[in-house]
Write a protein that binds this DNA or RNA. Sequence first.
DNA 1: GTTAGCACTCAGGGAAAGCGAGTGCTAACA
DNA 2: TGTTAGCACTCGCTTTCCCTGAGTGCTAAC
Lengths: 349, 349
Amino acid sequence: MELGDRKKKILQLIIESYIETAEPVGSRYIAKKNDLSLSPATIRNEMADLEEMGYLEQPHTSAGRVPSQAGYRFYVDQLMERYFMTMADMERVNQALKLQTEEIDKIISRVCQVMSDVTDFTTVAVTPKHDKSRIKKLDLVMIDAHSFLAVIVTDSAVVKNKLFRTSGTIDERTLKLFSGILNQTLANISIGSITFDMINSLKKAMPEYANELVPVLNFVHEVVTQLDQSNLYMRGANNILKYPEFADLDKARSFIEFLEDGEAVGEIIKSVPEGVEQTSIIIGSENKNPHMQGSSLILRTYKIDDSAYGCLGLIGPIRMDYRKAVSDIEYFGSRLSQLFEEIFHGGES
Amino acid sequence: MELGDRKKKILQLIIESYIETAEPVGSRYIAKKNDLSLSPATIRNEMADLEEMGYLEQPHTSAGRVPSQAGYRFYVDQLMERYFMTMADMERVNQALKLQTEEIDKIISRVCQVMSDVTDFTTVAVTPKHDKSRIKKLDLVMIDAHSFLAVIVTDSAVVKNKLFRTSGTIDERTLKLFSGILNQTLANISIGSITFDMINSLKKAMPEYANELVPVLNFVHEVVTQLDQSNLYMRGANNILKYPEFADLDKARSFIEFLEDGEAVGEIIKSVPEGVEQTSIIIGSENKNPHMQGSSLILRTYKIDDSAYGCLGLIGPIRMDYRKAVSDIEYFGSRLSQLFEEIFHGGES
DNA sequence: GTTAGCACTCAGGGAAAGCGAGTGCTAACA
DNA sequence: TGTTAGCACTCGCTTTCCCTGAGTGCTAAC
């Protein structure tokens, strides 16, 4: 059965009113608040139809109607209009994103916080995996006769380092020799394709320097493993307590606990297709993870460079303001992509 | 008025029972549960005395007694016995602290999480300021003809780095020259004493290299500022929801919000005297910050090296198990100090 | 100094009653 | 045929009232 324009309008009004007030919506309310020039009785008939079609539900006989999950889905797919962020909010975001740092993790963590402040939702963000980037340079810098620093720089501008203390003394020449060999083998290969075996065979190749070299190779392995993973940030967990849906303390607590466990949340976010900047809306039981089935999740990918995409997320009750959430997250996503564009391709710094 | 042994014993029993059950404690209960060989009536007399002295309170006439803040204070100062962690818990902590990394921030963040898991409290941790450490080496590593990496290493083994893209091409010799000058001026001075003026005069000293050098000097300034601050970690905010004291959602929410705001919490923790490994207990309104006055805070300093101390904290309701909290945090603190001792003075790595 | 006995207090829980928002159905109307 | 007024009905919420029971303070006896 196709939905007529009037039914669509009524459904939209009900959903938006419910989103705002969290109260079941009655026919009288719809008739009065909006100039549909229809009587409550007529609205009631339409509402009964919408319920039959599965878009609305009734908590109990004498209450108004509440959107069903299918209702929300229809709403976000077909009814939802674009929301425009106020200039004030945009300005606020832009101010907050004026950072001195270029460290990806710091930036993402900050965005996560600002987004939580602005949207009043719980926000999550994952930094991209760097499995497709390459080691550009591996250098060993002498600090003093008993210690040196290993530095790894990737073409995606990630730098990792570690200090080493040596058992004997060490000189610049030996370090140069080491770094030459390491660079030859490991540079310009994508991180994802550096294997444990590769590193192991390097270890065996130079038994005379094993004492100093093995720790460095372990470090390389550690870095490669690290870059192959993404970090997760979460902020504003307290925000979910603002919604009456989480008035039950136990429910709220176990949900926050779930959110604090990065692994699980990361798992969910990984399901988002990489490589395109897009927004996904996952409503209630559309979530695979049972903990999330009482909530909705809005995800938005952002781009660091062609080989690295990260993801932002907003978590709220199923009755969340999808209109605002979507436009907010899209603004953050685009600002973030833009920010990285400036940092990595914006000429010298 | 001096407290007799019997009064002390009764006060202790009341406090420990209240900590356990969160229910006001009646005279009958104390008489039955413990073999004081006293009748409820006698206990009542003693309780009335303790109330008069300000150690106990009565929520209402027909309820039992509840410890007052002064009661808790007396308890932690004079009555509390040592609690011994179970071997199982210790083992669990030790397992969780087996980390591959030597990055201070990662370690602290991890400890914070484990501590929250083990203790069921909200935990905070601050990393030390490094204002007393010195720049040991400042190196510029050439990456390719258009970019180089600046690396700063301090004597407290902190490494910071940043990539620079240059407008023109650059060669190793120029970088050597730069790093020579920078090292000469900035190395072996304590971070806290490197001033903005100092950096500014360096900028002016070499106008011909301004293009490349100024960004590096800005970076130095940034690093110095960063090292002068401490980072704060917080975990297990959801844990406070486990306590009936926070059953009021609004209260709980605003408290979690307060905790998520690092600044404010950092401010509180800074009040702890540095330089000694010790435990402080701050009960309810002894906290200066009004948000904290409904909670108690246990703080414990830990040592990274002679010039750098950090701090761990447990946050719970005033009715918290001080006995367990104190011994838990002390175990964590000592393990942490020990860990850093191994990392920084344990010979080669 | 300790204890038994007793009257008194008061928060919390449960039942009962009343309220009111909202419905579905029917019949009349355009 | 779609719309609307009217009306009886449903049912969750709130308020009120009462009762219960844990716990107290006081008094008098041991």
